[in-house]
C-alpha cells in the first residue's frame, strides 16, 4: 500500500462513456420514431378541415341574432356523431343591456374524442 492503484478509474470512466453514448443513442431512436410519425400522420389526424367546416357552416347559416334553424342544427348534430364521430354543440347566449343593446355570444364546440375545440363567436 505504498501508493493508490488508480487503474480501475479507467474502467469506471469507460462505463460512464458507454452509458452516455447508449443514452445518446436511445435519445436518437426515440426522436426518429417521433419524426416519422408526427409529420404526415398528425396532419391527417388533426381534424382541421372538419373543425373549420363546422364553424364555417354554422356562421354562414346563423341569422343576424345568432340563431340557427332547428332543423339544420339537428342535422348537423346527428350527422356529426354518425358520420364524423364528433360531438358538435352550438350555444347562443343573448344578453340585453338597457333594453336595446343586444349582444349575442355564441359558443361553437367540437369534440371527436382526441381533439377538442371551442370557439367564441359574436354574430353581427
Amino acid at each position: 500500500m505504498a501508493r493508490l492503484n488508480d487503474d480501475a478509474q479507467w474502467i469506471i470512466l469507460m462505463g460512464f462513456l458507454v452509458s452516455f453514448s447508449l443514452f445518446f443513442l436511445a435519445l436518437i431512436i426515440n426522436q426518429s420514431t417521433v419524426v416519422g410519425q408526427s409529420t404526415a400522420e398528425s396532419v391527417i389526424e388533426f381534424p382541421k378541415n372538419d373543425i373549420r367546416d363546422i364553424s364555417h357552416v354554422i356562421k354562414e347559416h346563423a341569422e343576424k341574432n345568432g340563431k340557427i334553424d332547428d332543423r339544420v342544427y339537428h342535422d348537423i348534430i346527428n350527422l356529426s356523431i354518425q358520420r364524423e364521430g364528433a360531438v358538435v354543440n352550438y350555444t347562443l347566449n343573448t344578453q340585453y343591456y338597457q333594453r336595446l343593446d343586444v349582444f349575442n355570444h355564441s359558443l361553437i364546440h367540437y369534440n371527436n374524442g382526441v381533439t377538442t375545440y371551442s370557439e367564441n363567436w359574436t354574430s353581427e
Partner: peptide, 16 residues
C-alpha cells in the same frame, strides 16, 4: 425502415 409507413402517409396527406 421506420420511414416507409411515413411515406404512405405523405401521399395520403397530399390527397386529403
Amino acid at each position: 425502415s421506420v420511414y416507409t409507413p411515413g411515406d404512405a402517409h405523405i401521399s395520403d396527406m397530399q390527397l386529403e
